[in-house]
Design a protein around this nucleic acid. Sequence first.
DNA 1: CGCTTTGTGTACCATGTGGTACATCCAACA
DNA 2: TGTTGGATGTACCACATGGTACACAAAGCG
Lengths: 197, 197
Amino acid sequence: MSSPSPRERLLEAIIDELDRGGLGERSLRELAASVGTSHRMLIHHFGSREAIFVAVVEAVEAAERARAVAIHLEVDPAEHDPIGAMRSTWRRLSDPGFAGRERLFFECYARGLQGEAPFDRLLPAAVTDWLQRLELPEPLPGMTKAQTRAFVRLGLAVMRGLLLDLLATGDRRGTTAAFEQWLDLVQRGMRPPAPGR
Amino acid sequence: MSSPSPRERLLEAIIDELDRGGLGERSLRELAASVGTSHRMLIHHFGSREAIFVAVVEAVEAAERARAVAIHLEVDPAEHDPIGAMRSTWRRLSDPGFAGRERLFFECYARGLQGEAPFDRLLPAAVTDWLQRLELPEPLPGMTKAQTRAFVRLGLAVMRGLLLDLLATGDRRGTTAAFEQWLDLVQRGMRPPAPGR
DNA sequence: CGCTTTGTGTACCATGTGGTACATCCAACA
DNA sequence: TGTTGGATGTACCACATGGTACACAAAGCG
């Protein structure tokens, strides 16, 4: 609640700016100009260009973690409606308002894959964090524990894959239809094999 | 079979090099040194740094297209074993030998998402090309045509999402288990709802 | 009040950048 | 043979880069 330090204000402005346009090969000066300061100030408050990237990665990571927690809370309360929880998760993820943040996430992810510091520090958590957090208290019906883990992992991949599709095509309707297809499969798969109607 | 032009040889060396390490913020000089030339030569044969990136994107795009075609051919011959085709596709995609090329693909993809030229020209084809190519001649049993399209789209997302996971974690076993979970779901979903055993 | 800390602007630095000019080399070809 | 055209090396250009030195202003505090 105390007035934020200039560093915090700057970081927020930077991330806002990166939400549009990403970081790409931007120089300190470009970045500074786009948030209304001088490169001198960025160096002063962050120490170096690299340190800015570190701060950005940490922010992206924190946002990702917060999202995982939020979804965890939503899924967990054993209301036994995983389908509904998944659907609302997708609805939130596919909100156009988040597109910028997600593009930034994937940019960091990809640069991390190439071993570029400091983006690579995002990777270990990018998958395992979610898997840990989404681990279900007990196996799904008809599955072993390992299968359930694999299923959750698959679910994460579905979200990421469709998100990648959505960001590239902008086709929210089509990707949502694909997601509904997923929910359908899950629903059918979770019914015992031969219910005998 | 004629001896390749120096430009072709250079491009191949460059892409080989990018398979390890990506392009990141590499300068002409770094790039030249890593493939054993001078930056002077790269400019001579390509015209500009940007033009090199164009050539790289085209190569990545061509590789992606070739992969789609190969899979199309494998899936199409109506041998009615889509599960087997998917499995072998995943086995091929998850081959560690392709990891470099896939990292490069995702890097280009992410940079394209940020609007960075010339990577953005990869995006339109990155999804629709696959969907067109994988379009099934007739709807899957129990699905409308639109649902079948959505299903294929979902399948692409599963591959991409799991690939992203695999590249980050290196956990081929775990991601393959997740993929098997997917195949399982598909298999169960494709059976008519109540076969009556 | 003076003193210190912090934020900011101006000017600067060495280095690296993409790109060019020009000379040289070498192989193909008449 | 001489000539030509592409490949290559050296040297260079103007400019942008990340980072620094230093001066100055404002605010907190004794």
